[in-house]
Each structure stands twice: as C-alpha cells, then as structure tokens.
Simulated scan of single mutants.
Amino acid sequence: MINKSPSFKARSARPFSDLLGPALADALKARGFATADIIGHWPDIVGVRLAEQSQPLKIQWPPRPKMDKPDTPAQPATLILRVESAFALEVEMGAAQIIERINAVFGWRCVGKLRLKQGPVEHPERRERPRPPELSPAAARQLEKDLGGIEDQGLREALERLGRQVRGSKPVTAP
C-alpha cells in the first residue's frame, strides 16, 4: 500500500556521486579545489603513467585584485603536486604541457605554474597486500602434494597462494 498523504515525499535512487560531492566539498575547498574534477581526471590530463607517479595536493590561488582595480585580470593559480622522486624531472620538463592540458579541461587559464613536492605517492590500489597465513607443517605438505601434478609454473604459484589463503583461514561457523 502506497502512502499518498501530503507529507509523504517519494524518493528516487540517486547516483552515489551526487551524494559524495557535497560530502567532499569542504575538504576540497580547504585545499583550493573548487571541485574534484582535477583529481578525478588526473589520469586523463597527464596520462596513466605519470598519474601513477604523481597526485594533485593543493591549488594555491593568488590574492584577489583590490576593489579599486576591477579591470585587473585574475592571476592563475599554482598547482602543488606530490611526485615520486624518480619522476620529478619528467614532470618538471612536461610542466608547460601539463598546465596546458589542465586549463583545457577547465576551459580557462586557471593554473599558471606547477610546484613539485617530492615524496611517495599513495594510491589505494597499490597498497601492499597482506601476507598469506602460515600453514602448519602437515597442511603445507598436503598442499604440496595436491599441487604436485601441475606443470605450469604460473598456475601452480597462483593455486598455491589460493590454497594458503583457504587452508590458513579460520573456519566459518553457522550462527
């Protein structure tokens, strides 16, 4: 039965990005980003290879022109990037092209220069995987025996990792 009272308001499903945007707005604003566009489109702007070795940290905007000089054009911002040390020179050499691409994405000259901070770039997909659990000597021998007939080395290694995970995990009990 559908409630048709005047106070009832039907809700429809909304994309997750519509909910996430307002939640991130304050954090992005604190770092000078008006939107998450530059962060979300970073691989498209610099290419996958450089995107894996760099990440936008902050946009520093210059002070606004004084009110008594309204005709003064707005100055472009400085984009601060964290870059893996080995790629800093490559990013520095391609800075003009990176700036040009950023400005093309936004449709105006919002970034005028890059400032690099060297250091490790953390990407969630590159986090270290946990080690497989240690097996008892008997379980390790049984796993070796079970994999004995597999000749393909890559398949054997993959099945060994899987076997260690399965045999080393604690059994699930029914409630």
Score class of each variant (00 low, 15 high):
His123Met: 02
Lys117Pro: 02
Ser136Tyr: 06
Pro130Val: 08
Leu135Asn: 01
Pro132Phe: 01
Gly119Asp: 13
Pro132Gly: 07
Ala77Val: 07
Val111Phe: 00
Asn103Asp: 07
Glu125Gly: 04
Ala86Ile: 04
Pro133Cys: 15
Ala96Thr: 12
Glu84Trp: 04
Glu134Ser: 08
Thr78Val: 11
Glu100Met: 07
Leu79Thr: 04
Val83Arg: 00
Val105Thr: 15
Ala77Arg: 05
Glu92His: 15
Met93Ser: 12
Asn103Ala: 09
Glu100Leu: 11
Ala96His: 10
Leu79Lys: 01
Ala77Leu: 06
Ala86Asp: 14
Glu100Tyr: 07
Gly119Cys: 09
Asn103Cys: 13
Pro76Trp: 02
Ala104Thr: 12
Arg131Lys: 15
Leu114Asn: 00
Pro76Val: 05
Glu122Cys: 06
Glu92Asp: 14
Glu134Asp: 14
Met93Gly: 06
Leu89Phe: 13
Ser85Glu: 11
Ser85Pro: 15
Gly107Thr: 01
Ile99Met: 10
Arg101Asp: 02
Lys117Ser: 10
Lys117Asp: 12
Pro130Arg: 11
Arg131Gly: 15
Pro130Lys: 09
Cys110Thr: 09
Ala77Trp: 04
Ile98Asn: 01
Arg115Leu: 09
Val121Ser: 02
Ile80Arg: 09
Gly107Asn: 07
Arg82Met: 07
Arg129Phe: 00
Leu135Pro: 00
Ala104Arg: 06
Ala96Ile: 09
Val121Gly: 01
Val105Pro: 02
Arg109Gln: 07
Val111His: 00
Gln97Phe: 14
Glu125Val: 03
Ala95Lys: 05
Val105Gly: 06
Gly94Met: 11
Phe87Pro: 05
Cys110Glu: 03
Arg109Trp: 02
Gln118Lys: 08
Pro132Val: 02
Pro120Thr: 09
Ser85Trp: 07
Arg131Met: 15
Ala95Met: 03
Glu134Trp: 07
Glu92Arg: 12
Leu135Met: 05
Gln118Asp: 03
Cys110Gly: 06
Pro133Asp: 15
Glu134Thr: 11
Pro130Thr: 09
Phe87Thr: 11
Pro76Ser: 03
Glu122Asn: 06
Lys113Ser: 13
Met93Thr: 08
Arg126Ser: 13
Arg82Val: 07
Arg109Ala: 03
